[in-house]
Amino acid sequence: MTDSRYPSAAQLAEAVEGFLREEVMPSVEGRLQFQTLVAANVMAILGRELTDGPAAAADHAEQLAALGFADDVQLVAAIRSGDLDGRMGEVLATLRPSVEANVKIANPKHLGPREG
């Protein structure tokens, strides 16, 4: 069973993405085709965010709390003031999962093997 807001927002986004990719793109060219590709990619981002965004946001809030901050604004202020200068490694390691989660939403192809 699923709730009556059906299809879900993510499914609607996926339908629009398919329309842009499969029906609009082949029938236009040049700049409009490029813009359509961009729009299709944006719909794919929306779909992934609707599905994975809430959990990613909750995880990020937990990581911030582990570092002792309520939100990114506070964390950024602390970084700037130098309060975290001795804790760079800890901050990087703590935030890695949410940084990766954001890439997974925005462009999962970017999460490849790390390069030197």
Partner: peptide, 20 residues
């Protein structure tokens, strides 16, 4: 512009590259 809006989300990639 949808193109300009979409470029905004590429921030996530730069954050990831900064981390690495």
């Amino acid at each position: 512009s949808v193109e300009l809006a979409a470029i905004g989300r590429r921030l996530a990639e730069q954050e990831y590259d900064c981390l690495n």
